[in-house]
Structures are given as C-alpha cells and as structure tokens.
C-alpha cells in the first residue's frame, strides 16, 4: 500500500486555484487582450462546467477524493479546529446572504431578455399586393451570377447604390451594423458581416424581413422591438432583390441554399 504523498499545495487548494485561474484567464483573454468582454451570463455557465470538470478530475480516484474532502471533513469533525470551524460557519452564511442580497437588490438597469435574433418566417406572406411562398421564393437575379456575370455585377452595383441611399444609416457603410443612427437604437441594427447572420439565411428570408420590416415579425418576436421600416412602402420589389445581392456580394457570404454550385 502506497503511503499518501505529502503535497506542497493541498488538493483542495489546488482545485480552488485551478478554478480561479480559469476564471481570471477568461477575463484576461476576452476583456483585456481581445477587447471584447465575456458576458456575465455566459461566464457563469462556463464556470459551472469548469468547476464540474475540475471536481471530476480531482475525485475520480478514491485517494484523490479523500484528499480533496479530507480538509473539509477535518474542519467539521476535528475538535482541535473548533475556532476555525466557528469562523467558517459564520463567514459562509454571511457570504451567501450577501450574494442573495446583492442579487435581489433592485437596480435601474433594464432586465436582460432572451431576444430572438432570427424570428421564424411564416410559410407565406403578403407584400406588394401579392402572396409569396417562402419555401419556393428565389431571388430572380441570382441566376445571372453564372449566366451573365457582367449583368450580375451591374445589378450588385445598383443594389449597392440603393443600400447606401436607404440602409447604411443604420446598418453602416461597412455592413457591420454600425451606421450613424445605430447608437440610438436598441436592439442595434444587424451586422451583416457576422458569420451568424445573413450567411445562415436563405435569400427569401431576407426578402421577407426587408419587405415587411418590424411590423411583419411573427408573434414569437413579440413584443415587437425592431425598428426596421416596412420597405415595401419605399422600395420596389426588384430593388429589394438587388440590395440582397449586394449584401451577400459585399460581405463575401453565400446565401443559405441546398443547391450545389
């Protein structure tokens, strides 16, 4: 039987240091080095599973588990640790109480919400006095990408002009959602450069969102908080399709499609 190793850093302290190290690592990498803070809600989820993983590693052997819980058992059972025990038993409830108090303290910040970024489109919708079936709706100009590249280029250019005249005020001249008006809007306008926006969607979805705007959103997006105008009132059908061509062309993204190139 091997005698238990004497460790320079006890297992329990090792565990605490590992968890603390990972936590600070996240803050350091995202908030300091990358300059994009890590949201508290996500960090909490991350840390729950980091702690679970760390506990699993520290307890999968019987010796490891005993070493880990040894100091805790000693704290509870060892008569010689009476004073430490009393101090811990006072501090822990106080910390828990402080946590509950600070969590429940009313604040001025608006509560967070689970916003639906991509509300599901309806099967059919009406615009320009017609009914469109989103399952079969296609961009009528997309075919020119292969059939007549020069014409396609011209269409994209026209779409770009329409975009600059109408859309860039909110969505930005770089299509990154940072137009001159963006700061005044909440939610902020969509960033088309993001890999998770138009790259994930079919062109028919964009047509529906642009043509019907915020008021066209389905009930699941209620309460409606999008300030997107109803563009069918301002742009012709073809103009919307051209803008869509421009959005994909400028960002270098491809619309979601089930057809092979």
């Amino acid at each position: 039987m091997n005698t238990p190793r004497r460790r320079i850093v006890p297992r329990l302290l090792q565990l605490v240091l590992v968890v603390l190290g990972v936590y600070l690592g996240f803050i350091l990498v995202f908030d300091v080095l990358l300059g994009q803070l890590i949201p508290k809600s996500l960090l909490t989820m991350y840390m729950v599973f980091v702690i679970a993983g760390a506990i699993m590693v520290f307890t999968f052997t019987e010796e490891g588990a005993q070493e880990l819980v040894g100091p805790i058992k000693a704290l509870v059972e060892d008569p010689s640790k009476k004073w430490v025990r009393n101090v811990v038993f006072v501090i822990v409830p106080l910390l828990a109480g402080y946590y509950v108090y600070s969590s429940m303290l009313p604040g001025f910040e608006a509560p967070v919400e689970l916003r639906t970024i991509h509300p599901a489109p309806p099967g059919k919708f009406k615009a320009y006095g017609k009914s469109y079936n989103l399952a079969t709706l296609e961009n009528p100009f997309r075919k020119f990408e292969k059939e007549d590249p020069a014409k396609f280029k011209e269409l994209v250019k026209e779409g770009g002009n329409i975009y600059i005249k109408n859309c860039q005020y909110c969505h930005g001249d770089k299509l990154d959602g940072k137009g001159p008006y963006a700061a005044g809007l909440n939610p902020t306008p969509l960033n088309f450069q993001d890999v998770g926006t138009i790259a994930q969607l079919q062109e028919s979805f964009l047509f529906w969102r642009i043509a019907t705007g915020g008021p066209g959103l389905p009930g699941e997006a209620a309460p409606w908080i999008s300030s997107m105008p109803v563009w069918q009132d301002f742009l012709a059908e073809d103009e919307i399709w051209k803008v869509i061509l421009f959005l994909y062309n400028y960002t270098g993204r491809q619309p979601r499609s089930w057809a092979h190139e």
Partner: peptide, 18 residues
C-alpha cells in the same frame, strides 16, 4: 449564438454580436 447581455455589456460590445 444569441448572447444574453445586460445593457452595459451590449454597449461594451457595441452590439448584440460577440
């Protein structure tokens, strides 16, 4: 993909996307 953000985080990130 859609993060739960407080208003201050939203401002800090400059939008809902990380």
């Amino acid at each position: 993909h859609t993060l739960v953000l407080t208003n201050s985080e939203l401002k800090g990130l400059g939008g809902p996307y990380h």
